[in-house]
Nucleic acid binder design. Structure first.
Lengths: 336, 336
DNA sequence: AATGCCTTGTCAATCGATTGCAATATCAAT
DNA sequence: ATTGATATTGCAATCGATTGACAAGGCATT
């Protein structure tokens, strides 16, 4: 006992399919007599009618679908941005645009392949929370067919509408704070160099250090991944230096957590023997027994602006679709 | 300069659209002369042809799409199961089935609304990693229209094909271990009672305690969410008891981490003053300076079996689609 | 030469909804 | 009664691909 199509509903009711379509639609419902409209709606409900969105997509040329590229599904910040984005895709609690979420894990060709799939599925827009310079070309090509929006990670060369955090200023905030606390020799543990985020944080941090006459460990220290494990390993490099810094700026809370654990294993106290600051203000940051000094990411703002960009671009209002950069906020806790 | 459709390719090449379709397909390509086939493929490539999957879906009655319901996108275990599932959706590295991932956050009506969307989009199957008794009805209804697969969380009443972990035995493993270590009075901090997972872990644990004559804190302790913050708060309840247990089984690593941090703040050492065990073997479990004794979730097995179920059911091989329960593994580290 | 088979390709219907245009009905105004 | 405007509905094309039925041509067999 399959569910009926519009055609069948029409037959049962003795009207044309177009009437059914209009009666059930949002914007064309006024074209059908209130009486008929009600009749159609009632019948649709108790016949268990369910619209076929693939058919509607084909005809409309709009799939009511958005492709979401995300670098890492385990990353709280990404997920939370996606959550606020998704929330804005609903109208009256009913999801009208379905997100197609796909993860790149920063693998070289992942993005281009996924973008191909998105385009084949005729997404109405693509929003990338995973941009790296390796995908620049793929995103540029895609942007000629469909609106492409950048979030979290920018790509300077592309000039696409984007929703970002001021990562440079975030790095600067940490630097200023460490200087205020009297640190004279500090160190960064950077995230993987692929994404612009970390580069900017590093720049902002270093700039302030230079300006205020604070020395940094000269050799740059990177992690392969932005994870606790990688952070833990990276700490070894800090201790290979001739002189030990008194504070570490980890580019992300996950890294910071690894660093703190590693310090603890070496019997060093945080912040007394070594101050540690992170970035993102993860859930865990508050819970740690040495609560983490970190930079709160403007999650809601970024998510909401990304959504706004999506809606403007869909509506063809290119003028309204400006890029914005939101300010993060330094959260001072015990660790630094 | 829009991309061409099959029709346009056909015109340019002076053949019928059906020939193009067959030449480009996997399974019907042999119906086209090798010469023509090559000609078509070459032309398709340099004309930048890209198939329209919404059109194909409509005609085929199969959308090459799978609806994935997940309770929490921040949960590593869910994500990792989804990852292995997704990996199996690719053929030769090319994604043929697109997952539609949606998060319920265990909110009452989220699942049914999302299932509606899935069905409107004509997904080929639904796989739920978010089942709670509240969604039982919705999943049952859905299963009459499309294959529904359960993963991680089961629903006893429904008898749907599922890929599970033996949570009861997992709980039992922890209990046996604590007994071996000489604990006589222990305590559980359970996850939210919605999902069967936690109920089973509790049962398995309590059964062994009872059998081996170990006492448990009588009042059951639940967390509102399976998060570190909730775990931290739950620990207060443990200390409200007249007699203090010597070991805690937290139903999940996130909870365990919160518990450990809270203990540390009270100045108690883990495991000397209080042993703590978790569940899932999260990334963080290894990294903690008191590495966590926990139960490794059979992520790969569950993910792969879920994928296998999907493929069998799609192929109409219902007989091959049996439920399976995989054994977790106790990982003994320092915390208990 | 007749028959049958195989290969290759065309024709046309179809999936289920949406929408521009035309048709009819209704009503008011002249 | 005629005209015009408005409201409501129907007709039919369309979105882009897939597929069953069928035709044409080539080849081998008898």
């Amino acid at each position: 006992m399959r569910r009926p199509s519009m055609k069948e509903l029409a037959q049962r009711l003795g009207v044309d399919r177009s009437t059914i379509s209009r009666a059930l639609s949002q914007d064309k419902a006024h074209l059908v007599a209130p009486e008929t409209r009600e009749k159609v709606r009632r019948m649709a409900i108790d016949a268990g009618y369910r619209p076929d969105l693939t058919a509607a997509s084909l005809r409309r040329g709009r799939s009511q679908t958005i492709g979401v590229l995300v670098a890492d599904l385990e990353n709280e910040t990404f997920i939370n941005v996606i959550r606020t984005l998704i929330a804005s895709l609903n109208v009256d609690g009913v999801p009208v645009t379905t997100p197609l979420i796909a993860e790149t894990r920063d693998k070289p060709n992942a993005a281009s392949r996924l973008i191909e799939t998105f385009l084949s599925r005729r997404v109405d827009a693509i929003i990338s929370l995973a941009s790296t310079e390796a995908d620049e070309r793929a995103l540029e090509d895609a942007s000629r067919e469909v609106p492409v929006i950048l979030a979290i990670r920018t790509l300077a060369a592309l000039n696409l509408p984007s929703a970002l955090c001021d990562d440079r200023e975030g790095g600067a905030m940490v630097a200023r704070h460490l200087v205020e606390r009297g640190h004279k020799f500090v160190c960064q543990i950077q995230g993987p160099p692929l994404a612009t985020t970390f580069k900017l944080r590093a720049q902002g941090f270093s700039k302030i250090c230079a300006d205020l006459g604070v020395r940094e460990v000269t050799k740059p220290i990177y992690t392969a991944e932005a994870t606790p494990t990688a952070g833990k390993k990276a700490l070894d490099q800090v201790f290979e230096c001739e002189e030990r810094p008194t504070a570490i700026f980890a580019h992300n809370d996950a890294i910071a957590i690894g660093v703190i654990e590693a310090l603890r294993e070496r019997g060093l106290r945080v912040p007394e023997d070594m101050a540690v600051a992170g970035f993102n203000d993860t859930r865990l940051a508050k819970v740690l027994s040495t609560p983490l000094t970190t930079v709160a990411y403007p999650i809601r703002e970024v998510g909401e602006h990304a959504a706004l960009l999506f809606h403007s671009l869909i509506a063809g209002e290119k003028d309204k679709a400006g890029s914005r950069t939101f300010m993060p906020e330094l959260i001072v806790r015990r660790s630094a």
